[in-house]
Computed example of a mutant assay.
Amino acid sequence: MIQSANHKNDGENTAITCLFLDIGGVLLTDGWDRHARERAAINFKLELAEIEERHHLAWDTYQEGKLTLEDYLDWVVFHQKRPFSRAQFRHFMFEQSKPHPEMIELVTQLKLRHSLKIAVVSNEGRELNAYRIAQFKLDELVDLFISSCFVHLLKPDADIFRLALDIAQVPARQIAYIENTPMFVQVAESLGIRSVLHTDYASTSATLASFGLQRES
């Protein structure tokens, strides 16, 4: 019988061999957060309160992979006739994603220096996720994508972390997780995963160094 990696012997090495990462707020900006929706409301002359109400009803279902982006847009934006096209709105959505170059460089250096396995554990809708992976070449850095749209689980559900542990086949004590949402850090830590609440490059780099993951000088 195959045993899950997080159930291996307690006496094994606790050196970090794998990084779990969020995408939005860590490697990149959030893909479609409140600020992006505010910019969209201004740009397309939309009623923000109505967009926000509809967004919150549909967003989790989209991120779980149970709606397409077209479905989401049907319910949130194009439930009535608009003077702009779907293509224009999709382009605007995608353009909200920007990189955090220092964090991408940090993870790249740590992966090379410490031979780390890199796994994304992220709440992302499929089309936005695909765009962000391709646009910022995340597939050249990341070994495993445990994205909510693929596995139909959303953080803070602990099962997405348990699934990530099983897929990565690395014990929880050998993983460091970088995440910018405090609740998600707490869930990961409850499973024995050492976690970093990411607020800025300098503090995250220092915390990882305290775990034994120093970047090149």
Rank of each mutant, 00 (worst) to 15 (best):
D71W: 06
A172E: 00
R39T: 08
A87V: 11
H79M: 02
R162V: 14
R82D: 05
L116W: 00
H198Q: 13
K45P: 04
V76H: 00
A206T: 08
D157N: 15
E52G: 00
L21I: 04
K45N: 15
T207P: 01
H114C: 07
C149H: 12
D60E: 10
H35K: 13
W59Y: 10
G125S: 05
S4D: 05
L163K: 11
S195Q: 03
V77Q: 02
S115H: 14
I167P: 03
V170R: 01
A202S: 13
E38Q: 15
G192P: 14
T61V: 12
G25W: 01
F94P: 13
C149Y: 04
S122N: 10
A176W: 00
N129L: 10
L197Y: 15
A58N: 10
F184R: 14
G192F: 10
Y201H: 12
A58S: 08
N129T: 09
P156E: 09
T207M: 04
T207S: 05
I23L: 14
S147P: 11
D74V: 05
I118F: 02
L191C: 07
L73I: 07
I104T: 03
F84Q: 04
E70N: 14
V76A: 01
V187I: 15
G65P: 07
S217Y: 02
R162T: 15
T199F: 10
V26C: 14
F78S: 04
V107M: 01
Q80A: 09
R215H: 08
T199L: 09
M93F: 12
N13F: 02
A49N: 10
Q88W: 09
L106P: 01
R54V: 02
E140N: 14
F78Y: 13
A130Q: 11
K117S: 12
R39V: 07
P83D: 00
P156L: 13
H7K: 15
T68N: 09
L128I: 06
V107Y: 01
S195G: 06
A164S: 07
I42C: 13
L141I: 08
N9W: 12
L28S: 05
F150K: 12
K45A: 15
T204F: 04
F78R: 01
L116N: 01
V107G: 05
F161E: 03
D159W: 06
Q88V: 08
A168R: 00
A164T: 02
I104P: 00
